[in-house]
Design a protein around this nucleic acid. Structure first.
Lengths: 386, 386
DNA sequence: CTGTTAGCGCATTCAG
DNA sequence: CTGAATGCGCTAACAG
């Protein structure tokens, strides 16, 4: 590789025209030009792997026969196929997805958009999807929206430009307009939503049963003896939040627990810069003795703030979140939560997407469904009152 | 899309031959066949976006002129170029990387192999690399080895088969044989190692200055007044571990602290199933009053075990790790650690790889270097003795 | 069953 | 400066 002859730097070198028989380079670091003779650069173009043509020549067959053998259609003699497969193997043949993609108008790439990578939750979701997709010959582009609507649009556009065969996505909390996804669908790129789903688009959606999970969480607080129960979550534009809130609300009713509006905080700012608001919430004279938070992240924030204020957990305040964030089990006291069947959600989403891709052309069959998977209660110290 | 006519299932439907004018399907769930008329499946083949041919036709030019304009070579009239670029824009042209890839024998895909995704550390590393790579038009396949040597090999092979243009990798703690990477290099796929580097392969390596970091960690323990200082880490085959241990050892010497062999635990099992060994280590009559652990993960394990044994942290035992794991700041007491300039490492690795790719053919210029970036001490409660 | 041919969308000689 | 022709590796009609 090229090192700058002056400062030895390697990563800021750019080609800068040719002079007779030599290649000129420019180093961005020391701002100097230098020259290397072209004839010293014996090109070694490693052979790009062998092709079906090579196999055909070796066996004295036509390339289409090789193609057929490799794609195991039934229109080929068994013996011929066997021979071809064996020699292909022995020659170390590997199919060129780029070439196949050009012919088939496919890229064999799937895009996955998640809010973040660093959580157990999303990385497991991806693992689940990957497990199914790789077996079907698809590769994955992972994109992070970082909970930003703008990034989500950019990611989606990048995936469209890359001509992915399909998209699996969890939207950000900010996403209220879905036209970027519509654009993908119009380009015949199918989409499946997982975990954070919506009612806007007619696509498959795979998620945990958020309603049931919220009911379980609320019920858990009630069972543990908490009486003045509150809820903290994002604003009312967010579908998942609404569903979880509904489960919370209905469960309170079911158990004849007094519903108090002042214990409810449903605002978008709770998701991002919540600390001052949570502080305020917990400082009020008449505060709840137990809260269900829309997410573990919010729950962790509440837990930290409460600790700072000297509020005893779980005695004076019980907290239960949703999603089992990686930090929840390590924080002190550990945070109770609702765990989702993450791996399964990922796998189901991938299966749904593959089905969409395989039947891309069967247009006049309507296609929209939602799969809800069962959540699981994880009781930890933050609600361990009794 | 296709729904089973019997059970309404959608994700287990496979095509099963054609009968005259109809497509037969088989549902894996209810094990039944059903048929849908082909002529009801008006194929809608959304036009795969417009091509340079379309632009050429519209403008009455040759396709090669369009190609030139798009690739901004200098062999084209400025005005022509301007017109072409504008109409391309207005027509919504997007270049087809699959086709370009076939011609140029490139995939515009880069593979990144990391031990895990769910940590702050690796996801930030990836973000850094992504930032550089996307600006250069590359997309990324992310692979997780999950700290398994076997997976690492499988990942590498998958990337080779996918004909990526380059690989950025952090090896597992188990990796002692690097022949899978050698295979990639032989296929002319350049590799850059980041974070967990090795001395086996002649490639660029980007990492934090592990020696310096270990010195800083050890020095911190000494400054905090710990006297009987120990080390826990993986076995002696692992390069990073050796370097960190060396820093630890040298610092002890430098400060004339008594080095005690019984305080040292350098075994591979510490990385995976360490709990019983750590338990044993902490139970010994004469145990250290301060430890530097090779990673935060080990440090967290020590911290948990010590707490269970009733050992007071930081009074009776100080602990400092390495890497600033996401959990470290949340665990109680919070874990002191050495933070790495993660984003930068990722960016440098990407720059190095791009340089390798761009100069792939300049073979007789040797290319091997190591870039070491400065670490940062993060003092938290687990060493806050004074 | 098998071989021949024609592209998929684009970059790149080679002639103007 | 610009256009026509070639081919990257492979699949899919189309003929045998």
């Amino acid at each position: 590789m090229i090192k700058c002859l002056n400062c030895k730097e390697v990563s800021g070198i750019v080609k800068s025209g040719k002079s007779n028989g030599s290649q000129r380079y420019f180093c961005k670091y020391c701002k100097k030009y230098f020259t290397i003779k072209v004839d010293e650069q014996k090109k070694l173009k490693t052979k790009e792997g062998i092709t079906i043509k090579d196999i055909a020549q070796k066996l004295g067959l036509g390339i289409s026969t090789i193609s057929r053998a490799l794609n195991s259609s039934d229109e080929i003699k068994k013996e011929t196929k066997k021979i071809i497969l064996e020699t292909a193997e022995s020659m170390g043949y590997e199919k060129n997805l780029t070439a196949i993609g050009l012919v088939k108008q496919q890229s064999f790439n799937i895009g996955i958009i998640v809010p973040e990578l660093k959580s157990d939750f999303y990385s497991t979701l991806i693992s689940g999807a990957n497990h199914i997709l790789k077996n079907k010959g698809y590769r994955i582009y992972i994109m992070q929206s970082e909970e930003s609507y703008k990034n989500e649009i950019a990611n989606t556009n990048a995936l469209i430009a890359s001509r992915v065969d399909g998209i699996i996505a969890s939207t950000t909390f900010e996403t209220k307009d879905f036209s970027h996804f519509t654009r993908a669908i119009q380009k015949n790129i199918p989409i499946v939503f997982f975990s954070r789903v919506n009612n806007e688009l007619k696509t498959p959606k795979i998620a945990v049963d958020n309603y049931l999970g919220a009911c379980m969480a609320t019920e858990h607080l009630i069972n543990k003896g908490y009486k003045r129960i509150g809820y903290l979550g994002g604003g009312k534009d967010f579908n998942i939040g609404n569903i979880r809130y509904q489960g919370f609300y209905d469960t309170l009713r079911k158990y004849n627990i007094k519903f108090q509006n002042k214990f409810i905080l449903r605002e978008d700012y709770i998701i991002h810069n919540s600390s001052q608001y949570i502080h305020q919430y917990l400082m009020s004279k008449n505060r709840p003795d137990g809260v269900f938070t829309m997410t573990d992240t919010i729950g962790i924030e509440v837990l930290k703030t409460a600790k700072n204020l000297g509020i005893k957990i779980p005695e004076d305040l019980g907290i239960i979140g949703f999603s089992d964030h990686i930090v929840s089990r390590y924080i002190s006291p550990s945070l109770s939560t609702i765990r989702q069947p993450t791996m399964e959600i990922g796998m189901e989403a991938a299966k749904g997407l593959i089905n969409l891709i395989d039947n891309r052309d069967d247009i006049n069959i309507e296609f929209e469904y939602t799969t809800l998977l069962k959540p699981e209660l994880v009781a930890r110290d933050s609600t361990n009152k009794l």
